[in-house]
């Protein structure tokens, strides 16, 4: 039983490994366990396919955003400006 859980993972675990793998943070062992589940689990296969599609779209769009620190600075500046207007 112990050996089984050692090799076989739950659907949610498999999906989280798939997520990690989108950011190249899954270990070889995790990828192996995901591949095993991928072979027989239709839900995992569907998730992997959708997840890859999402990653591709994100890469293709080249979306960008402000860094947290830049947002904080902007917030501060805007607050000052807002206060100036209120006076």
């Amino acid at each position: 039983m112990k050996n089984k859980s050692f090799l076989f993972i739950s659907c949610e675990e498999a999906q989280i490994i798939c997520d990690k793998s989108q950011y190249k943070e899954a270990t070889l062992w995790e990828k192996f366990k995901l591949s095993l589940r991928f072979l027989w689990c239709r839900i995992t296969r569907t998730y992997v396919s959708k997840n890859k599609k999402l990653t591709q779209s994100l890469k293709q769009s080249k979306v960008t955003c402000l860094k947290q620190s830049e947002k904080e600075n902007l917030k501060e500046t805007l607050q000052k400006e807002l206060k100036k207007q209120e006076h």
């Binding site: 402000l66 902007l74 500046t77 805007l78 400006e81 807002l82 207007q85």
Partner: peptide, 9 residues
């Protein structure tokens, strides 16, 4: 973006 927010205000 900052100018836009200022103009918005």
């Amino acid at each position: 973006v900052q100018d836009t927010f200022f103009a918005g205000l």
